[in-house]
């Protein structure tokens, strides 16, 4: 299983999911949703060292979720909304498919186990 998750190319959706799996990186994205920010802007709310924040930014950049200006002195970070939208659309579509599938499975399991008392917590 682990081997299948390796070799995520930069900008892939798997890379985006891996980047989003970390709470600090999600918080960074939320801040960037309000506008571009520099590494020091982003480090301030987290009580983290600049190198630590830089490491998170590198992961986000490799995932395609943010971009950074190459030539400006402070290299502000920019949220790539299109990439995030792609992740969001995909998640919503697939959650819906699995929600509907498991709703049906719930019903099927209830029918199979006819004797079992119905629960009212759904």
């Amino acid at each position: 299983m682990e081997s299948m998750l390796k070799n995520r190319p930069p900008g892939s959706l798997d890379a985006a999911f891996a980047a989003l799996a970390d709470p600090t990186r999600r918080a960074i994205l939320t801040i960037l949703a309000d506008g571009d920010a520099t590494v020091s802007d982003l480090a301030a709310p987290f009580a983290m060292s600049l190198p630590a924040v830089s490491k998170h930014l590198k992961v986000l950049e490799a995932s395609g979720l943010i971009s950074r200006t190459r030539n400006a002195q402070f290299r502000p970070c920019h949220l790539e909304r299109a990439a995030l939208d792609g992740v969001g659309d995909w998640i919503e579509d697939h959650r819906r498919v699995w929600d509907e599938r498991l709703d049906k499975l719930d019903q099927h399991l209830a029918e199979l186990q006819g004797g079992k008392e119905e629960r009212d917590d759904s």
Partner: peptide
């Protein structure tokens, strides 16, 4: 679910979709 296809990241595949921060917050 892994090995998710990269084309869903491409804007041309999501015509007519509008971003909202609420949506972002939900899926995060």
């Amino acid at each position: 679910q892994s090995d998710i296809p990269d084309q869903v990241l491409r804007p041309e595949n999501r015509a007519g979709f509008a971003t909202t921060l609420d949506k972002l917050s939900n899926y995060l």
